[in-house]
Design a protein around this nucleic acid. Structure first.
Lengths: 218, 218
DNA sequence: CGAGATTTTAAGTGGTGGCTAAACTTTGCT
DNA sequence: AGCAAAGTTTAGCCACCACTTAAAATCTCG
């Protein structure tokens, strides 16, 4: 089970999360940053490993086994992020890259020891839920900030961990998962969003509001 | 810089430690458990990377760059062993295998954070010295237990970390690096050695006494 | 000096993971 | 329905890595 296979499983899982439909080859290829042909070939490999089923021309889905692989990698990733930040004091915006490598290298034993050391947490520092060791995950339904409307109030629960710039930007301004917010204003045509966190109103642009997710109150 | 390259550098360094002479291809091949031809090819690769110099038919030596690579990997390995044992409570006899994998995966930043968390230790749990971040190591001259004679007293400083059985055996009997000892008796023909640790005399066989190393008193 | 040991070269294997180009299927529009 | 565009798959290829066996080269030591 090579790194690449694990990465594809993770990517398929991740893309399949929202829409519970098969994942298209091109979406997968774009996510992994390879050509569609390469993604197609890899998907075949996952199928031959029993990790995915595919309907040619209609997309891939993970089998339960494939989902387990994906969730295990995701568990490793999120535990590592939390551990690096918490136990080793690594800045929030650098843990992702490190976890991306280590997630493939740590044994089950170490990952469980890390989970224990952290008190078996349920969410990582970005607000993402951590799958359990037996391959379960509960995803609370969240909405992208870009979908919200003025007057909406709730909790900022997570932000994509893939872009260090965004993380640094947010943490520089003291905005962290768990913070309550209220949408103040929304400019039309994908314009910026004015959001109040505490007493400060921040104006957040498009890419950012697509990466940030909220649980609405009520 | 692939894992294999790092492993070869580490092996050459390790084999070159004792006798400060070039390392033979066959010794290297045996250490890595590959054919001599494979080792020969890899050595060429190290040379082309500027990590080693070789005198065909007369062995390899690491360049300063190669030594740095080796020492960095060794540093990672030993810090990880210590960290896994100390911070995550992993048993002494299992840390080696895990460190063998992770040593290639952790970044400099994480390894320095681990070193800090451990208080910048100088020795790992097996008693092996830990190279500094800038590629220095001080190796106190030690002698194998199998070379010692009755009446010799000193400190048990280290034991090869490669064999979990030995580690378990020793720790089960409460024998740990740092312990003082006295050689009580030595049977001829590579027979067992009687060694006093504290008030207990242990009879230790051949392979074990070759893996255990001592600093003699005086 | 020459036999035996060691080392190197030569040639080839199998796996991974990627690519382009061309062929094929689906979709969506008229 | 028909057709073009978009999306997907296949075919054929490449590069890398790390290893192998077999044969040739070199060294060493009696």
């Amino acid at each position: 089970m090579s790194h690449a296979v694990q990465d594809y499983a993770k990517a398929i899982w991740s893309l399949g999360q929202r829409s519970h439909e098969p994942v298209s080859t091109s979406a997968l290829a774009e996510r992994i940053a390879v050509s569609p042909a390469s993604a197609s070939a890899m998907v075949k490999r996952l199928e031959s490993l029993g990790l995915a089923t595919r309907e040619p021309y209609h997309g891939v889905e993970l089998t339960r086994a494939g989902e387990r692989v994906a969730l295990e990698v995701v568990r490793h990733h999120r535990l590592l992020e939390l551990y690096l930040a918490q136990a080793l004091g690594m800045p929030w915006d650098r843990v992702h890259a490190e976890a991306e490598v280590l997630e493939h290298a740590i044994s089950e034993e170490v990952s469980e020891r890390i989970a224990d050391a952290l008190g078996n947490p349920t969410h990582d520092p970005h607000g993402d839920p951590i799958p359990t060791a037996d391959g379960m995950i509960e995803e609370a339904p969240t909405r992208a900030f870009s979908d919200l409307d003025p007057g909406d109030v709730g909790t900022f629960v997570r932000v994509s961990d893939a872009d260090p710039e965004m993380l640094r930007y947010l943490s520089d301004r003291g905005i962290l998962p768990g913070d309550a917010f209220e949408i103040v204003e929304k400019e039309p045509f994908e314009g910026p969003l004015s959001v109040r966190f505490g007493d400060k109103v921040h104006v957040l642009g498009g890419a950012l509001t697509q990466a940030m997710r909220a649980e609405l109150r009520g």
